[in-house]
Amino acid sequence: MFNEADLTALAITLKLAGVTTLILLLLGTPLAWWMARSRWRYKFLLEAVVALPLVLPPTVLGFYLLITLGPHGPVGGLMESLGGRPLAFTFTGLVIGSVIYSMPFVIQPLQNAFEAIGRRPLEVAATLRASPLDRFFTVAMPLARPGFLTAAVLGFAHTLGEFGVVLMIGGNIPGETQVVSIAIYDHVEGMEYAHAHWLSAGLLLLSFLMLLTVYGLNRRFRIMQS
């Protein structure tokens, strides 16, 4: 079934997806909220940037990240001069790449959910003495719950399936940056089809179960609300 290297790759993959999703929810929530509410006329520029990873080949994204995070790049160079390691070929580097790569999958559902609430419930809360922050946590967040669930699961699942970006900036260091998708590739290259089968089936099942959960819960939520 799974050998030890496969299990390590699986653990790294899940950790990467978890950390990435968490960071994206933390950073993406205020950004999505702002994008849903702002009337700034150049907002579309930001929206285009957020959507970019949807269409960009992962290798292109990975290439630029490699340049930036590597020892000769601006970020990598800075890290090195501060006495750290360049971020390329590290787990941290992978997290940075994944955050960018999966960004639209988290931000767009959140933005849509916030937009769907409309201004009215927040105005109502304002007339009921709730401060802006209070309104956000007690009205906007609970009403956007299906959006949060969708965002978290899509962000997580999308990061699970990452290949190109990881290959470019993470390399293939077993125990540090080797994720499942790359382990599968290695198995196929090495003609170890049985291992490739197990890992592929594992990812397939996991992804499917997560999506089932999202659609199932969102359906229940809609029924509850109506």
Binding site: R120, A125, T127, R129, P142, L143
Partner: peptide
């Protein structure tokens, strides 16, 4: 608005659905 001591009833009741 949240610091004004007023009550407001909107045209559609706009109850919090959650």
């Amino acid at each position: 608005p949240h610091k004004r001591p007023l009550g407001y009833v909107f045209q559609e009741s706009s109850l919090f659905a959650h």
